[in-house]
Amino acid sequence: MSNEPLAIETVSLGKRYGSTWGLQDCSIEVPEGGISALVGPNGAGKTTLLRLLVGLRRPTSGKARVLGRAPAQDDGDFLASVGFLAQDIPLYRQLSGAEHLRIGAHLNCQWDAAVAEQRLTALRVPLDRPVHSLSGGQRAQVALSLALAKRPRVLLLDEPLAALDPLARREFLTSLANVAVEGDVTVVLSSHLVHDLERVCNHLILLTASRVRLCADIDDVLAAHRVLVGPRRSTAELERLFTVVKVTQTERQSRVLARLDGPVLDPAWEESEVGLEDIILAYMAQDEALTAGPLSMVGGAG
């Protein structure tokens, strides 16, 4: 693909829990810099992928590289280069933000306490109170500041927005966008709140049912996907040429969401742009349809 340096690369990465696969045949490439949105329905394998990337879990098959290293928790250099914010923002409940910062300073060779303190003070997060008494948004900001104080080159965030109200969510994403602009850091952020991510992310990884459906720059995703509307007809020809994601047939009209690899020559189809959320939802719906029963159309992986 591209010659850009890769922050994250996985090849056929798979993780099995007992007899079910949490993640299967996952091959992704995340270029350095920017913010990647890791999107997918609940149980799609987002958490599994992130935990494999930080070394908390080990792959059943395939391999992962983060900044050229295999994730391993006996590798101090690896740990130093990766920041991780786990699901549900685990912190020591009874300890304050300031104490967490002090702990971080003791646990990391590289620690930027001043920046973390400034961030939290600017956000008016009380540093002297036990974190369990903070609001969800404040806790998330404490955790983000802790992850950032490590000055990681890759920052993995697992559903940091889930517990936040819309305002806190916006503040959190703004913080994150600033971080990505300021620093030499690659962020991967998992969420099922597609709408929020579009604003700050430049790269998309879409997982559904333990598999990768898309992994590309959001601009490229938007450029490649089109809605085609025309008089009601068979979509067989389109399916032969392109990757059809979703077909909606009404009495008089056919509406097709497809990934186009070339121009649509048939003038009967009227082409229009489509939003990221619609693209993602179409892939998710396709997957549900596939699990519900066989369907004529088959989507391609990204």
Binding site: A80, F84, L107, N108, L146, K150
Partner: peptide, 16 residues
């Protein structure tokens, strides 16, 4: 139980 190993084990200190 508090999932804090996710925090402790992803700092600069190896699990060892």
């Amino acid at each position: 139980e508090a999932s804090t190993e996710d925090f402790a084990w992803t700092q600069g200190v190896t699990r060892r």
